[in-house]
Design a protein around this nucleic acid. Structure first.
Ligand SMILES: [Mn+2]
Ligand SMILES: [Mn+2]
Ligand SMILES: [Zn+2]
Ligand SMILES: [Zn+2]
Lengths: 137, 137
DNA sequence: CAAAAACTTGCAACATTATTGCAAATATTG
DNA sequence: CAATATTTGCAATAATGTTGCAAGTTTTTG
């Protein structure tokens, strides 16, 4: 069975062209995608609003997760672990390559715990490393 | 001597009302500021474009640093270490409080090193922790 | 399988945020 | 203080994000 279909059904989502296509992009793409990438890769076949809503739906369901950036954009990538609606477990480090520009989920590199000052209670931690990726090295 | 003035001169920047005022905001404010905050705190006394350019200039000079977020905004905070033009050394963890919304530079908490897969060469690492801050606890 | 119900999409209108060129204003230099 | 260098605000333009709603599509029901 197509993996995209399987994922949509498992999450109780109606199966539509747009959702299948956008999910495929994530499944086929190793790196993370920004809203703009998706518009480009789908040749603007779907309305910009639909893309916004689809991404939001996927995040809500725990199908994709967001990666913070420092350039007024948000990157999205597949959740490979068992994320559920309302509860993500994406504790891995993200790597942004300065040369090729790709953002890669280092699924096997866990964000290390840090000791916070008194009174601070951590809930989630994100880590983004920049540098040169293994392809560009 | 006023600290803002001192910082501007040290970095070879012309001293203007806008720069002094915006720099003061950072000096007076413990937390990080977004572009929108600055417009609000200055009562829109300066054109939006001037604020963009001022923030960019400060980042370039190593006076402030950027903090990545997951909501299409960029936060800025003072560099407290010896950052130079073109070379930042802000290796500290950032904490975003889910209750009061403040973003705090944990200047004494260093981003831990992580072991990356073969071929990846790190240059910089950023870490953002969310949760409850010491004021809101 | 067809009808009803539930949900998703695209459009249009609108709002917010960001970028650029350029002339006027301001700051620095000597 | 005059000459020069730099910064600012404005206007125009672009890019990005949000909302309501009617039409279209998918799912459920009998
Ligand atoms: Mn990831
Ligand atoms: Mn900081
Ligand atoms: Zn690369
Ligand atoms: Zn707080």
């Amino acid at each position: 069975m197509n993996e995209n279909l399987e994922i949509l059904k498992r999450n109780g989502l109606s199966v539509t062209e747009g959702r299948k296509k956008i999910l495929d992009l994530f499944l086929d793409n190793e790196g993370a995608l920004a809203h703009a990438d998706i518009e480009k890769y789908t040749d603007a076949a779907f309305d910009r609003v639909t893309v916004y809503r689809t991404l939001q739906t996927f995040v809500d369901k725990g199908i994709i997760h967001q990666i913070p950036t420092t350039d007024n954009s948000i990157l999205y990538a597949l959740c490979k672990h068992k994320c559920e609606a309302g509860h993500h477990h994406d504790d891995h480090v993200h790597f942004i390559c300065n040369l090729c520009g790709k953002t890669i989920c280092l699924d096997d590199v866990t964000v290390p715990a840090v000791k916070l000052p008194k009174g601070f209670k951590p809930a989630q931690a994100a880590m983004v490393v920049t540098g040169t990726c293994s392809d560009c090295k």
